[in-house]
Design a protein around this nucleic acid. Structure first.
Lengths: 165, 165
DNA sequence: ATAAGTGCAAAAGATTTGCAACCTA
DNA sequence: TAGGTTGCAAATCTTTTGCACTTAT
């Protein structure tokens, strides 16, 4: 029986996350700055997959002054620390999401409206491990994205179809 | 029973491919030029996953004069026509491969030496269809890449390990 | 002839980097 | 105070585009 679950959702404590990030920084000779903590919070207090521009907007709305360069540099740190995941989708900018609010998952993307859904399927995960093993590889990570057309009424793709152009 | 096959290999006739491409061009008000045919041949007479730079090198070696802009423009046409596949791998340039010498397949990539292997697993394909269906999406395509470390002796990742750095 | 293709150089978009001023520890 | 961090602007890198010239049909 095939079941594609939504990834499990976890309660995360921002305080605890900050501690984790601080530990990471300490271990890497890094310093704890307002910009860094604010970016961590921006990604965890908002739910979604954000582009760098969107992150800059979020922070601006929260009256946090930060440069684009610092956002890029900090995102690298957050990804290295494992607290944030980088999502390279085809045909759009790189996006970032909190890594600990959800269990591991992959993505479904609508090619018309760019909506992003998440899925998790244990069978799939198992199959991937087996395949890599068969080829004598040690798994590091995987990229798995399903691109399709959603059936939502407000999806631009749908509208175009109706006009029959 | 899990079996991750190598994708089936097909014999392709370059002449026939050229006809296919010409038909595509004709149907799109496009013209048949030397540059376009040469690029089609470059990708089919060489086996691999090539970056734009590599394609330019191949063509230069074959004494075909073509500009980078034309390569980009022609690759778009070839991808649209279905004769060539575009491969967006993380951390490296976009690559292109012939689409008809092999059946559908996905990729395994070594994060150390960037070696690319191909695999095909029917169960995996089936699972993906089911998942997309469950989420009310119409499948368009998918991106599936397994990143790992290969065990080959000449892989740079291996060498680093030996020194124990 | 005429619409489309080509090369070139400039433009665009995303990300990285050098550097002087500025903070954390 | 010493070394890491920040912002800014300049630099990179990849891909796209405007335009005058050339070619396929």
């Amino acid at each position: 029986m095939v079941d594609s679950l939504k990834p499990e959702t976890k309660e995360v404590d921002i305080q605890e996350l900050e501690e984790q990030f601080k530990s990471f920084l300490y271990a890497h000779n890094g310093k704890v700055t307002n910009e860094r903590l604010a970016l961590l919070r921006a990604l965890y207090e908002n739910d979604g997959h954000f582009s760098v521009d969107e992150i800059l907007d979020i922070m601006k709305n929260q009256r946090v002054r930060v440069s684009r360069a610092t956002v890029y540099r900090t995102l690298d740190l957050l990804v290295q620390s494992g607290l944030v995941k980088r999502l390279a989708l085809e045909g759009q900018e790189t996006r970032y999401e909190s890594a600990l609010t959800q269990g591991h998952h992959d993505h479904i993307v609508c090619v018309d409206c760019h909506k992003i859904l998440e899925f998790f399927n244990p069978e799939l995960e198992q199959l991937q491990d087996t395949i890599l093993e068969q080829h004598n590889f040690q798994m590091v990570r995987h990229v798995h994205q399903l691109y399709g057309r959603c059936i939502d009424a407000d999806c631009p793709g749908k509208k175009v179809k109706k006009r029959g152009s």
